[in-house]
Every structure is written in structure tokens, then in C-alpha cells.
């Protein structure tokens, strides 16, 4: 039983990806024993009609993966009245979390809008996911380059909103020192999709407080097996395996109830 915290619907903007049809995606997740998938939308990177993006996401999750796909709405803090997108995600679509892509939208984590978003999400008991990077900088389209998100201001933001729950997706390229400072600064969670190196997962688990590392595959842009095989490589077994595959995600959601 797997709770995959890093799944995405719709189209990657730069090519078709196996699994980007929702029926195929759901079948793949089920075949790999995924029973819950926190699901964002690739449309959230570049589309400006975010209300439409989130409506489609909620509808597709319901239509194709009821009980499996849990929609996480996109919020673009540079758009006018983004606060109403948060309200709709929570009140209309009953979403449990939000997903941000600051490096595709041109805002940072040090400004007042981000603090306001953390406050709104915390008040509504929603998780805030921030995608650190979506693609290796070396392979990005030269006209659409998006560097790694600057997470240095996040620690100060978490001091302002200490009850906020934040998950950094695709965090494997964060400098270890910065990653550790963020883990110490507040309720920060990570996934394993971009953890690399034969000892990458072992070291991440050793360095992280209990419960902070969640399973995330980044499917369908990454092969789902890339993430599941990491537990075998790291020799994660027994209770630690159960916690990483689903227990930590369930505990996080329970903490937000």
C-alpha cells in the first residue's frame, strides 16, 4: 500500500509522456499498489486561468480516480486575486493541499504574498507543496528555463507561520545544509523522487527527523519504478518501509485534521 505524494495530471508542456492520459495513469498507479495519490496539474506551471486548471483537476480526479487521486490545486501568487483560488480549492473542491511552482511563475518565498498563502493554508488546514524543480536545468528548453527554487527565505517564513505544513517536492538537488536548516525550521516534509546516489535515500533518512520523508514518485514525468526501487536499494524494510510508503503521509494528513 503506497501513498504517492507527487503525482501530476494533464500534459507536460514539452512532450507527451507515457501515462499522461488519466485512465493510463490510474491503471499504472493501481498496478503498483498505490492507494492514494496527491495529484497536481502540469497546467499549473504556465496556464494563467488557474481557476480552470483546478476545476479540471478536481473533475478528473473524481472521474478517473475517485478514492485514489487527491487533487492538490495550483496557486500562482503573481495572479490577481489568487486568494480566491485558495478559497475555491478548499471550499468548492475540498482539496487537502496546494501545489506551488514559484520558478515557473517568477515569485519568491520571501515576500508578503507567500506569508499570506501560508497563513491561509494553515487556517484551512491545507498542506502546501512547493516543487523545487521540475526538470534538470541541463535539459530544459532553452527558451523556457526555470532554475531551482530559492528556499533560503523559507525558514524565516516558517517562523512567521509556525503551524504551517510544507512539503518540498523534487528536493533532491537542495544543498544538504539548506535542507537540514529547513527541516529544523518548521514542519517541513520531503519526498524521494529526485533523491540520487546509491546511498542517497539512506543518508536522507538518517539526516531527517522521523516522519518527514514521504514517498513521492513524480509519476508520470518520472518512471514510477524509479522511486519504488529506491527502498530496495536502501534496504528499507519493516516498519520503516511502511512509514515511508504510506504511514508518514497518513500521519501528516492526520496532523492537518
Amino acid at each position: 500500500m503506497i501513498a504517492d505524494t507527487n503525482v501530476t495530471l494533464s500534459r507536460w508542456p514539452f512532450r507527451r509522456v507515457p501515462g499522461d492520459e488519466p485512465e493510463v495513469l490510474v491503471a499504472k498507479l493501481r498496478s503498483q499498489s498505490v492507494t492514494e495519490a496527491w495529484t497536481g496539474s502540469f497546467d499549473g506551471l504556465l496556464h494563467e486561468d488557474i481557476g480552470g486548471v483546478n476545476e479540471r483537476l478536481a473533475s478528473d480526479c473524481r472521474k478517473y480516480g475517485a478514492g485514489l487521486l487527491k487533487p492538490f490545486g495550483s496557486i500562482n501568487l503573481r495572479l490577481p486575486d489568487w486568494q480566491d483560488d485558495v478559497r475555491r480549492c478548499h471550499e468548492r473542491f475540498s482539496m487537502r493541499g496546494l501545489r506551488l511552482h514559484p520558478n515557473y511563475q517568477g515569485y519568491g518565498l520571501g515576500g508578503a504574498p507567500f506569508i499570506e498563502l501560508l497563513e491561509m493554508a494553515t487556517e484551512r488546514k491545507m498542506l502546501v507543496q512547493i516543487a523545487a524543480v521540475m526538470e534538470d536545468e541541463r535539459t530544459q528548453n532553452p527558451l523556457v528555463r526555470a532554475p531551482l527554487v530559492n528556499f533560503a527565505p523559507l525558514a524565516a517564513a516558517l517562523k512567521r507561520v509556525p503551524e504551517a505544513r510544507v512539503q518540498i517536492l523534487n528536493s533532491g538537488r537542495l544543498a544538504p545544509q539548506l535542507r537540514q536548516s529547513l527541516l529544523a525550521a518548521g514542519h517541513v516534509y520531503l519526498d524521494i523522487a529526485m533523491v540520487e546516489g546509491v546511498y542517497g535515500l539512506v543518508r536522507l533518512l538518517e539526516a531527517s527527523p522521523a516522519g518527514r520523508v514521504l514517498f513521492g514518485s513524480y509519476y508520470p514525468l518520472f518512471y514510477l519504478e524509479s522511486a519504488t526501487l529506491k527502498l530496495q536499494e536502501a534496504g528499507v524494510e519493516g516498519a520503516a518501509r511502511e512509514a515511508l510508503l504510506s504511514g508518514n503521509a497518513r500521519a501528516l494528513m492526520a496532523a492537518l485534521q
Partner: peptide, 18 residues
């Protein structure tokens, strides 16, 4: 490209391919 890359992530490319 192990050990800088994970054997798991790289095997996943083939294991997960259609």
C-alpha cells in the same frame, strides 16, 4: 552512472518502460 546516480533510479528507466 552509479554511485553518483542511484542504481534504483536508473533501473527504473527500463523496469518501468512500456
Amino acid at each position: 552512472d552509479a554511485g553518483g546516480r542511484s542504481w534504483a533510479s536508473q533501473l527504473g528507466k527500463v523496469m518501468g518502460a512500456d
